[in-house]
Write a protein that binds this DNA or RNA. Structure first.
Length: 845
RNA sequence: GCGAGAGUGGCGGAAUUGGUAAACGCACUGGACUUAGGAUCCAGCGGAGUAUUCCUUAAGAGUUCGAGUCUCUUCUCUCGUACCA
């Protein structure tokens, strides 16, 4: 049968996609006789259209999955939909549809688009997080959290638009105003549900060490900083004039507790700064001379939106409360100020100010004319604070610090803490930057929180057997963006699980990060109706061996998912020996166009569907992998993809030409045939070194661009030698093996065209099940090596030597080379360095 | 400010352990084939020079027989983060 001269990507791709589906080529089951490999890409939000970032992400994952299958692993490669979230509500308002139908129809569209790319997913494991059979399990988790005291309610300030009467997400606040109606956004205290992630801060931090080398360093560094462990001391400063309870370390309203990482500077405190939200503020300012001024300040700061307050352009400001506290060591009177830069949520909401040794305090003191006191200097001599131009923040010897003077400040730290503890004025504490996770959202399109409120019984969890609490799907979102759940009487009205009386459902839904914190575990047992997953499935499949996704999720998603593993382990959902979800992480860069992120508003979006229609899925996949290494951003290039298309055409023509000499059957791949001529030897060398390189690049280094470049070089080499090798029988065998190797190595990257070749050769099954080729050491042996000769590190010549030549022989030959001899004229030979197999460097002057 | 990373031809990038800088591809130039070419093939392609050759990895210094790679200084850019007490 003739082989078509034209490469028609579309018909080939559709044919093999159907074949794979019909043959269940990528379905996987637990098989304890084989090693497993779980490849996962971050699941998409079903916006309706895949973009190039998706194509890049999923193409990387598919190469890994297909490569591991060929290596003999039992591979699980699932996909699903992160289907709850704000965009569905916005689209629903804009197009007057229901979020549920909008979401499900987007899923249908995007599923088709992904299938057109030929990814090797086990579609039976597909999940959509907005489906009750998915979210009911996190409602069950929620009940467990209540039971175990892992979740609590607390008031917290939220962005609030009074005109729309709704809470706004940070991204809905534009320059401090509501994105919809443009009115000023205020901060409103609302009761929220908090999950105690801080209870796991230590473990989350410690376990980062187990991920070293397997996760990118920068992600580990970011998580480390985000958790932000700092060791210091909590110190109580009694209020001046208040009744002081000696010996108590409990929180009391007659003292101000501060957290400091620098207890060694305690003797240098000259003022105190409190957050305007600090609980003691009201008592402190009441009846004082500048009460009005203080109140105005507090009011102003409180009404600033959170983004503005935390911006870097914010000028440090403060106001004196009129109150004083006392230094627990010296008894000095310390004025208490309010500062706009002190955060109520961090530490204790109060800062002891040491202007001589902290730059921020220094600036503040200079601005408001406060005094400085030096308590550390480099040499132990006193510092003249009047000549200081900046705070002295280095280590040194303590001065003006009573009994502690004269020692290093590092020693002083420990001794001051010990002294505080013995006096009951403070203690060593660990402070975390990490805060508890607010998982409640005042939104409609999310998983309902399974709780009801009863006038008699108060807050009552829904009974486990009554789950799921179904989110009504026929609801139309409000024009103003307000959650329509609260207005849906048939949802809200219910009966109390405890007393049976009238009760109202919680109308907050869960943060969508909750869904994405455990979906990878659900995939292992996606159709389980009795549990979120079985321990058997988790034990076999977890952890994810390779996780791939955008670096923008380096902190939140990855931290929450890690946290979930640990919580669910402690709740006995997950085997005790699993506590980290992702064994290896690859963070991929963005796809740019003309140096900027693709976006509709910039009009620079390249639609993958158009590209597939023009070039075919294999070409699009190939180019996404070839254009740049995965972790780097890459700039889409319309002419660049032409090159990838050209390469596949070139392979097609090569196959067509060599088809008559290709030995059919599995034996042709990576043949260990003996090569007779120099050209045959060279091709065999190239073939085997390519197998070696591609295996390393795909399997270890995740550098698909260089893997593809190596395959291109092999193809180029075949083009050069094919005429000559066609002349002999041995040559034909070597050629056959080389082209077969090209096809095999390309299989994970461009699976459709390779499947076409494979079947054209009369093979059955799928090429994706064939063994990954193995290179043989003998093919990589060279009889003659090219040795580079340098003089003083500069390239001056090359020689060919036998691979068996000794150092002495190489040195002799190098010195005898004509160009070298010429360059050495008139110079004195100092030293000759011979690196066998590589180079000779002659040192002369 | 702090933390992390990067800087290599006209462009994307390669150089994996300190050992031939610019692999592979794009763009471009010349040629072949051709009624035609936006197909294909051949050749060229960092800079200077006819050439032997010299210079070249942001800039400068250092270590080394040898530095794109290691150290220091400076500059630029990207990402993360935000007054963390």
């Amino acid at each position: 049968m003739a082989f078509p001269s034209r490469y028609d990507a579309e018909s080939i791709e559709l044919k093999w996609q159907k074949f794979w589906t019909d043959n269940k080529s990528f379905d996987c089951e637990i098989d304890t006789t084989r090693p497993k490999y779980y490849v996962l890409e971050m699941f998409p939000y079903p916006s309706g259209n895949i973009h190039m970032g998706h194509v890049r992400n999923y193409s990387i994952g598919d190469v890994v999955a297909r490569f591991r299958r060929m290596q003999g692993y039992n591979v699980m490669h699932p996909i699903g939909w992160d289907a709850f979230g704000l965009p569905a509500e916005n689209a629903a308002i804009k197009h007057n549809v229901q979020p549920a139908s909008w979401t499900y129809s987007n899923i249908d569209d995007m599923r088709d688009q992904l299938k057109r790319l030929g990814y090797s997913y086990d579609w039976r494991r597909e999940v959509a997080t907005c489906h009750p059979k998915y979210y009911r399990w996190e409602q069950e988790f929620f009940l467990k959290w209540i039971e175990k005291g892992l979740i609590y309610r607390k008031k917290a300030p939220q962005n609030w638009c009074e005109a729309c009467h709704t809470v706004l997400a940070n991204e809905q606040v534009i320059d401090g105003c509501c994105w919809r109606c443009d009115s000023l956004v205020e901060q409103k205290e609302l009761t929220q549900w908090f999950l105690k992630i801080t209870a796991y801060a230590d473990e989350l931090l410690e376990d980062l060490k187990t991920l070293e080398g397997a996760w990118p360093d920068r992600v580990l560094a970011m998580q480390n900083n985000w958790i932000g462990k700092s060791i210091g001391a909590e110190v109580a400063f009694p209020l001046d004039g208040a009744l002081v309870n000696e010996g108590t370390t409990d929180n009391a309203d007659d003292e101000i507790r501060v957290f400091t990482t620098r207890p060694d500077t305690l003797f240098g405190v000259t003022f105190m700064t409190l957050a305007p939200e600090h609980p003691l503020v009201e008592t402190l300012i009441k009846g004082k001379e500048n009460e009005a001024e203080s109140r105005a300040f507090i009011e102003r700061i409180r009404n600033m939106d959170r983004m503005a307050r935390q911006s870097d352009t914010l000028e440090k400001e403060g106001v004196f409360t009129g109150a004083y506290c006392l230094n627990p060591f010296t008894g000095d009177q310390i004025p208490i100020w309010l500062g706009n830069f002190v955060l109520a949520e961090y530490g204790t909401g109060a800062v002891m100010a040491v202007p001589a040794h902290d730059q921020r305090d220094f600036d503040f003191a200079k601005k408001y004319g406060m005094k400085l006191k030096a308590v550390i200097s480099a040499d132990g001599h006193d510092l003249d604070v009047n000549t200081l131009e900046a705070a002295y923040t280095d280590a040194g010897i303590m001065i003006n610090s009573g009994e502690f003077s004269g020692q290093s400040n590092e020693e002083g730290k420990a001794k001051i803490i010990a002294s505080l503890e013995s006096k009951g004025k403070g203690k060593q504490t660990v402070n975390w930057r990490l805060r508890d996770w607010n998982i409640s959202r005042q939104r409609y399109w999310g998983a309902p929180i399974p709780v009801v409120y009863c006038d008699k019984c108060g807050m009552v969890p829904v009974k486990k057997e009554d789950l799921p609490v179904l989110l009504p799907t026929h609801v139309q979102p409000q024009e103003d963006g307000r959650s329509s759940l609260a207005d849906c009487e048939e949802f809200v009205k219910t009966s109390c699980p405890t007393c049976g009386g009238e009760a109202r459902r919680e109308t907050d839904t869960m943060d969508t990060f909750v869904e994405s914190s455990w979906y990878f575990a659900r995939y292992t047992d996606a159709r389980n109706e009795d549990a979120p997953f079985s321990k058997e499935a988790l034990s076999y499949w977890l952890p994810v061996d390779q996780y791939i996704g955008g670096v923008e999720h380096a902190i939140l998603h990855l931290l929450y998912a890690r946290f979930f593993m640990k919580v669910l382990r402690d709740l006995d959902y997950i085997p005790a020996d699993i506590s980290e979800p992702f064994a290896n992480l690859l963070t991929q860069g963005m796809v740019l166009k003309d140096g900027v992120k693709m976006s509709k508003s910039k009009g620079n979006v390249v639609d993958p569907t158009d590209m597939i229609a023009t070039y075919g899925a294999d070409t699009v996949r190939l180019f996404c992998l070839f254009a740049a290494p995965p972790e780097r951003d890459f700039d889409w290039s319309d002419s660049g993809i032409e090159g990838s298309a050209r390469f596949l055409q070139r392979v097609w023509r090569l196959y067509q030409e060599l088809r008559p000499v290709i030995v059919s059957g599995a034996a042709c791949f990576s043949s260990a045939q003996h090569a007779e001529t120099d050209k045959a030897k060279a091709l065999r060398f190239r073939e085997h070194s390519t197998v070696k390189k591609v295996g390393e690049d795909v399997g270890n280094r995740y550098q698909f661009n260089t893997a593809i470049a190596a395959i291109m070089e092999l193809v180029n080499e075949i083009y050069i030698v094919k005429e000559e090798l066609m002349q002999t029988e041995n040559g034909k065998i070597i050629l056959s093996s080389a082209i077969a190797t090209v096809i095999t190595l390309l299989t994970p990257i461009t699976p459709h065209i390779c499947e076409e070749f494979w079947h054209d050769l009369g093979n059955a099954g799928t090429i994706g099940e064939q063994a990954w080729p193995v290179w043989s050491e003998d093919a990589l042996q060279k009889d003659v090596l090219t040795i580079v000769i340098q003089i003083n590190g500069k390239l001056r010549g090359k020689i060919e030597v036998s691979s068996k030549a000794t150092k002495e022989e190489i040195e002799k030959e190098a010195l005898a080379e004509s160009n070298i001899a010429k360059h050495l004229e008139g110079l004195t030979l100092r030293k000759v360095i011979v690196i066998p197999g590589k180079l000779v460097n002659i040192v002369a002057n």
